[in-house]
Write a protein that binds this DNA or RNA. Structure first.
Lengths: 350, 350
DNA sequence: CTGAAAGCGCTTACAG
DNA sequence: CTGAAAGCGCTTACAG
């Protein structure tokens, strides 16, 4: 042990690393108590501190490059000033837009946004929950494919409010679990109606095993039956291009009585389906029409007919809902659900 | 004040919210000291604690649903177990892939990944730095368009190692600032050579004002001059579709002596340029060839000829570099730079 | 009005 | 070998 001013991390190298400046350091320099430093740094008015002292503290803080130590603040205030955004797959372009929406509301309110990628798997979602149980964020915006209200209750029961996306409202007791969504069944019904209007009779739907596929299949099947047509569903595992391509090859393998239109539960599936159809030598939409869901940026570029979900607005509304919950007393009302409007975007693929 | 077991957040509502279980609670239940609980929970072997006691502590911890309080741990250990990933724009599909790469290495090592979006602006980057100065992460992987080594030194000087992306190595003193990159100038030169080989003579380049545009322009200009051709550069503000479309309209407005090929400093610009060219009634590549840079997923779908950057591998390598720095003594070696290979992807657009 | 003290939940060095 | 105590950096209630 040599000098106590030497940081333990600096090894033998000497003076390359500066230890962090703390309130204690400023207090020492300014000849005041550490508490006085905290007061001056945090309040815009401090009647209890003489102006001269206040000025001196501020001067030293500036000169010494003081930055509050965030972990210490979190511990003391029992607030992290962070919102978590739990998503199935950040490489699906729908989600970066959503995260941006959350950030647009969180940042001005002084909240950080932490992203947690679950990979769309139950295990990933469970890990997200225990991670959140460690007091990492003050609230959560999340797309959960597997976890339902009972599993999310642990979190909500620890006073961590949750806003779920892409879900209809389901009873959440009086816990602060809200929902922000578009009417998936109705949106899907609208797209199915559009395809029927365009003259299609054999319309298949490609689904993924989890997530909003069920709601979307419901709307599709209802309209098909109402029109006297037979629902024709192909389910693959994930919301990915690979799954879409695989499902499409399966459909094409049927030969002559294959469908004339394929509606996919999201745009990633639809893009995979398009690629697969084209590499089989088919023209889209002449040989086979394809529609998607989400309206990711690539959909416009590829001329993909799809259902537009306002991802930025969904994120922003979810974040606003969370911030309301974080107001004093905001946890006491029961879960609500807020619906946004979808839009059928007709382009060249169908 | 009534009972002290009632959480302050529960308001009048009663028993909906459970206070968090702490080590103290477990200690009380098991009749041991809080320190013993910490020991048992953290070490796989505790010779100092009798087996029976150990088992009892573990049992209560499980039953009471104990989760360590992360902020308290961060404060005590002076480690956040988080890596920050600073990106200009998460909606540019290049970056989600990069973040995934970082996560693929960070997660198995027990590190979280925090994402910080700078919007590509100097102010955003400055905010990222002061945010990091608050002790939020143990290390940073970042794409900085504006900040250079001097500004990043404050961070590195606080023992927060930094890995920069998309930059050649520049002297960083003996601070732990590393670089992971592809040779942007050489990659750009290779693409320019390819376009010349395809018979183009009038080749323009669309740049953004900041970031890797300069390096990329260098390689382009060198090859053009070596081939006896005249470099023709159009600079717009950002790496966005809008900027690309705007720059392309400017180019098309020249009329007859417009270039036959346009090389864009990234894929977003190239996509904007493609859309703009097509909406002006031109065919790509017959009337005008277009090339990009990055190879984002949409590039393949759109048949965009581009330079492939291995974004996942870049992220993974950056994270590995950071983890090495976080080993004991890892901060003592000077900044290094590690290069990955690029690849020219020839598709239909050029 | 002013300043010292308690304590958030945890880890680890240290005294019995 | 065992258990109580110090302290990370901060905020805020409380005693002079």
């Amino acid at each position: 042990m040599r000098s106590s001013t030497q940081t333990p991390r600096s090894g033998g190298g000497g003076e390359r690393f500066n230890p962090r400046t703390t309130q204690k350091d400023i207090a020492l320099a300014a000849g005041v108590s550490q508490a006085a430093v905290s007061l001056v740094l945090n309040k815009s008015e401090t009647p209890s501190v003489p102006d001269a002292t206040r000025a001196r503290i501020l001067k030293f803080a500036g000169e010494m490059g003081y930055q509050p130590h965030h972990p210490a603040r979190m511990l003391r205030r029992a607030r992290t000033m962070a919102l978590a955004c739990v998503v199935p797959d950040i490489t699906n372009p729908f989600y970066p837009g959503l995260v941006r929406g959350v950030q647009s509301v969180a940042a001005p309110a002084g909240y950080d946004v932490l992203m947690f990628d679950t990979d769309g798997r139950e295990e990933g979602e469970a890990r997200a929950v225990s991670w959140l149980l460690q007091g990492r964020a003050d609230g959560v915006v999340g797309t959960f494919f597997h976890l339902r209200v009972p599993q999310l209750s642990t979190l909500a029961g620890q006073s961590v409010p949750i806003v779920r996306l892409e879900s209809r409202y389901k009873a959440a007791g009086d816990l602060p679990i809200d929902s922000v969504y578009i009417d998936n069944a109705e949106a899907s019904a609208a797209m199915t109606r559009y395809l029927i209007e365009r003259g299609h009779r054999r319309i298949a739907m490609i689904l993924a095993e989890v997530g909003p596929s069920r709601q979307r299949a419901l709307g599709y099947a209802a309209v098909m039956r109402a029109a006297g047509l037979v629902p024709d569903v192909v389910t693959d595992s994930r919301y990915s291009e690979e799954s879409g391509a695989r499902a499409m090859s399966e459909i094409l393998a049927r030969g002559r009585d294959r469908p004339t239109a394929v509606f996919c539960a999201n745009d990633m599936l639809a893009i995979g389906a398009m690629v697969s159809a084209r590499s089989a030598g088919l023209s889209v939409p002449d040989d086979i029409a394809i529609a998607g869901f989400d309206d990711i940026p690539a959909a416009k570029l590829l001329g993909l007919t799809t259902v537009r979900q306002p991802e930025f607005d969904l994120g922003a509304l979810a974040a606003r809902t969370l911030l309301e919950r974080l107001q004093p007393g905001g946890l006491n009302s029961r879960g609500q659900s807020r619906e946004l409007k979808f839009e059928v975007m007709t382009r060249s693929s169908a």
